[in-house]
Write a protein that binds this DNA or RNA. Structure first.
Lengths: 342, 342
DNA sequence: TTGTAGGCGTTATCAG
DNA sequence: CTGATAACGCCTACAA
């Protein structure tokens, strides 16, 4: 292990000067700076991260907690966070809880050791002990996508309600009157917001929304699949479905295909969150795309700013956009004749 | 900041005892152990990761370098690595280079500071300076998926050649004689192995493989798209394509769709690497699935073993499997009548 | 079984 | 502009 003292000795200066020279401190002669750098490269000197972290009081690691790194949405957030962090010479440690709250807690507490300078998180859990663990983190905290109840950390999100309202209104414009939603857990504010936009579109259209058309608390492919089956078993099968997120959509699509229904002929499908393969699905899926990469960058940016001492970091709301493909169409002919029963 | 001394004071013991008690050292009375633990929780004591790392000589962070975390293959590897690492109380730092070699180098060198206890990597670069940087890493190194030329670190991979040969033979059995391959960069040993399996299947079938049916060096969706267009412009359009990996497949599919061709009626498509949405694509894509999650676990395991002092860690070869869906079919009728020209 | 004390490699303060 | 030197917080011989 070649240390700073070795470099100092070779360059004929003190360790303090080495530190300064290497950090580009202006109060160092160009001559000595050159000497030091030469010595450093000659010795292949690399400052120890641990020693630096101990001495400076914090690491150069940013954390990202996500429920599932395999979900491309979070992978994109990760990429954005990492790119932005790299610009300030920070690295990222990514922890994925597999949608497991217990694991999430463990991870959280295990990171209270100062490994991380700051943390960006999208959490599944939301109870108090959880909140406590999250705020006990040494460095700044930023929330991504959603904010658990009773939290006050800054959040980066998209305008869920607005974009949903807009997208659903398109469905009404096409003649649909029976639009269902496979929604997420009630505790997710994202679910609330998307549901709210959904309801507003119903109001705008002056249509009645039966409770049975909203399936709460579904998550993942399995959840989407189950919810879709319930929907298809209803006496009045909806003519369109709006899915809470990408994985839920995949599950719903599978159920629809299994039922032998054709999209959009028999039923229209609208997804929240885009996927790179949606354009190639049969049929190409219309989706509301969140700027995941940008959300990651924004989260890193907020963290970096707080790390730089800035206090007044506030929420960021990015626009989501409707990407029209072919999974939306007019309702089946029969439905247009028979409006929804009382 | 509550430190070990605070705990020691509260528990009425020395700092050494605190360390031992908390680590579960058997040479500590149950009584004192209890006292210490009580004090620790009462104070909310969490040992500093930096101090521990400095003192012990290495961190509890495992690194994973991948070209692209948004590619679900690597995301799954990451998940596997993380899960296995967590079992031994290690965390994971994930760095994704965006397929950019320069960035890869930067990342690599920036991690020579001992941040990582060990590193698992799938690299894009392969030159000497690169190899040097990779081996200069403080801790053990494990390669995932492919090994850059002239490296001797242990590798976890799948049996590319064997599974490819098998899959391609299915195509021949269906009556195809003009099977093309969109292959990856020549420096990738994975590309070589898959190509080798591809060639062997041709030999097994006693068919002639024109050079124009192999497109080298394509990567990513853009690469797959370009290569497919070239293939479709050939005088003798192939009746089946084998794609080097998942992203290449997506690009190829897009090109095929743009050309107005129907799969598998006009052309059959075989993918290397599965994707969760392949079953829903039009038509469902037949793919060779690598056990990505298991590969990640295996990589973590090898790292952990080397960290535990084990020396003789050798390559691991996991089985890949052909998942039959609907993108493979007999060649177009016309082709069956007119065998490939001289 | 438990305590004492030195060191891990940097950074930062304070003189000079 | 540069040099000594004291932390940073924990771990671990070694001693008791």
């Amino acid at each position: 292990m070649v240390g700073i003292r070795d470099v100092a000795r070779l360059a004929g200066v003190s360790t303090a000067t080495v530190t300064r020279a290497l950090r580009g401190d202006p109060s160092v002669t160009a001559a000595t700076k050159a000497k030091v750098q030469a010595a450093a490269v000659q010795l292949g000197y690399v400052p120890s991260a641990a020693a630096r972290a101990l001495s400076r009081g914090h690491s150069n690691l940013l954390g990202l907690f996500v429920p599932d790194i395999v979900n491309p949405f979070y992978a994109q957030v990760a990429q954005g966070l990492e790119d932005r962090a790299a610009e300030e010479r920070y690295h990222c440690v990514i922890a994925s809880s597999h949608l497991n709250r217990e694991r999430e807690q463990q991870l959280l507490t295990s990171f209270q050791d100062g490994t991380l300078a700051g943390l960006a998180a999208t959490t599944v859990g939301s109870d108090e002990s959880f909140a406590a663990a999250l705020t006990a983190t040494r460095g700044p905290l930023v929330l991504v996508d959603r904010r658990p109840r009773g939290f006050n950390a800054p959040l980066v999100r998209t305008d869920n309600r607005k974009v949903t309202r807009h997208a659903i209104s398109r469905l009404f414009a096409m003649g649909h009157t029976r639009i269902a939603m496979i929604s997420g857990p009630r505790e997710f504010d994202t679910a609330c917001q998307r549901l709210s936009g959904f309801r507003m579109a119903y109001q705008d259209a002056g249509s009645f929304l039966p409770d049975s058309y909203i399936r709460h608390g579904h998550l993942g492919e399995a959840g989407g699949h189950a919810a879709m089956r319930e929907l298809l078993a209803l006496p009045q099968v909806p003519t369109a479905v709006f899915c809470f997120n990408n994985l839920v959509t995949v599950g719903a699509l599978t159920a629809i295909r299994a039922a032998g229904l054709k999209i959009p002929h028999d039923i229209s499908v609208l997804a929240f969150d885009d996927m790179s393969l949606f354009p190639l699905v049969d049929p190409p899926i219309t989706a509301i795309a969140q700027p995941a990469y940008e959300m990651g960058r924004a989260a890193a940016d907020m963290l970096l700013r707080r790390l730089a001492g800035e206090q007044e970091v506030t929420d960021i709301v990015l626009p989501a956009t409707l990407i029209e493909r072919e999974s939306l169409g007019p309702p089946p002919a029969a439905e247009r004749i028979t409006p929804p029963a009382t």
